[in-house]
Amino acid sequence: MAELLISTMETVPGYVIRKHLGLVQGSSVRAKHFGRDLMASLKNMVGGELKGYTELLQETRDEALERMQAEAKAVGANAVLNVRLATSSVATGAAEVFAYGTAVVLEDLPETA
């Protein structure tokens, strides 16, 4: 298993947890330039999806997850389990996403046959 595995579950079917490396986390705060903010508030007058903000949320989320994965790799894990995403609200027009999970070392389940 070369690639880092992330999962919201506490266990992964087919693998055993060999080592528990503790909590790893990553957070990100991002904003769009004021033009996009202006367009979003105008769009809010007529209703519908605010695409700029959806995109912003996605970018922020991906970045938070990436940072969490980088931290997990740094401690020598090959998987992060029980991943949760949390959000906070510090600034207006900015998305803040916080990702955390448990870094573990997984190993293939020994063949039972």
Binding site: L5, S7, P13, M45, V46, G48, L50, T54, R61, L65
Partner: peptide, 16 residues
Amino acid sequence: CRTVFVCGSAVIGMDY
């Protein structure tokens, strides 16, 4: 089986 982390997001606004 194999597992993959998946997510989706949406920002929906209201009209005046």
